[in-house]
Design a protein around this nucleic acid. Structure first.
Length: 213
DNA sequence: CATCCGATTTCCT
DNA sequence: GGAAATCGGATGG
C-alpha cells in the first residue's frame, strides 16, 4: 500500500472509533453518515484531543455534565448546542476515560435528496451540509441524539466510502472557529478535508480571546 | 467577501 | 451574574 494508493476499506465498528481522534478523523473522510432518510458523505472533519491536551476542546478543563459522553465509550455521538440555536455532532473516539472526538463539519448529500430538500427548504443544495450545524440540521440530529451509540444498529449509523478517497486529496490545516489559546489554529492543525470538494466550509479564523485568567 | 447580530446553554467568577 | 460559545443567515459592498 503505497502512499498514493487508496486506503484500505474501513469497517466502522467500535474499534474503528476507539483510536486517537487524530487517526480516526482523516479516515472518516468519504464515509457516510445516515439518519432519518438522508445520507451525507463527509468531506470535512475536525479532531479534538483530550482533557488538558487541547485548549479548543470542550473537555479541556475536565469532566462536566455536558462533556460526560466524550469521556465515555467510543462510537457514540457527542451533540452540543451552539450559539443559542444550532446543534453540532462529534463522533467520540479513543479509550474510555479519554475525551477525544471528531467534529463532523461538512459533507454532501448523496441519498435522500427529496427529504433533505424539504428539511432545508430554500437553501441551495451545496449548503445543505456545508457546516457543522447545517449538517446536523439536514440529518435531523439534535439534542435527542447526544450520547447515542452509532455502532449498535441504532437510528444513526456510519457507512464506509463507496469509492475510496485518494490520500493525496486529503488536506489538513487550522480548525475553524476555535477560540482561546491556540485559537489561530496554527498550533492545532486538526482539521481535515477532501481537496476540491465544493461542500468544504469556508475558513473563518476563530476569535482570538484574551486570557481569561 | 465582510460584517453584523441573533437566541440560549454552559460553565466560570 | 455574565462572558463566551466547535455557527449561520441576512445584508451590504
Amino acid at each position: 500500500m503505497g502512499l498514493l494508493a487508496p486506503r484500505d476499506p474501513v469497517t466502522l465498528d467500535r474499534s474503528f472509533f476507539a483510536r486517537p481522534a487524530l487517526v480516526v478523523a482523516p479516515e472518516l473522510l468519504g464515509c457516510r453518515i445516515v439518519h432519518a432518510g438522508v445520507t451525507v458523505r463527509l468531506t470535512e472533519v475536525e479532531a479534538y484531543a483530550g482533557e488538558g491536551a487541547d485548549p479548543g476542546s470542550h473537555a479541556f478543563r475536565g469532566r462536566t455534565p455536558r462533556t460526560e459522553v466524550m469521556f465515555g465509550e467510543a462510537g457514540h455521538l457527542y451533540v452540543y448546542f451552539s450559539y443559542g440555536m444550532h446543534w453540532c455532532a462529534n463522533a467520540v473516539c479513543g479509550d474510555e476515560g479519554v475525551a477525544q472526538a471528531v467534529l463532523l463539519r461538512a459533507g454532501e448529500v448523496v441519498a435522500g435528496h427529496e427529504v433533505a430538500a424539504v428539511r432545508r427548504a430554500g437553501v441551495p443544495e451545496r449548503d445543505w451540509a456545508r457546516g457543522p450545524a447545517r449538517l446536523t440540521s439536514t440529518l435531523a440530529i439534535d439534542r435527542a441524539h447526544d450520547g447515542i451509540d452509532v455502532c449498535g444498529g441504532g437510528p444513526v449509523r456510519f457507512e464506509p466510502p463507496t469509492e475510496p478517497v485518494e490520500p493525496a486529496c486529503v488536506r489538513t490545516g487550522p480548525r475553524v472557529g476555535v477560540s482561546g489559546p491556540g485559537g489561530d489554529g496554527t498550533a492545532y492543525p486538526y482539521r481535515f478535508w477532501i481537496e476540491g470538494e465544493r461542500t468544504v466550509s469556508a475558513y473563518r479564523p476563530g476569535v482570538i480571546r484574551r486570557r481569561t485568567r
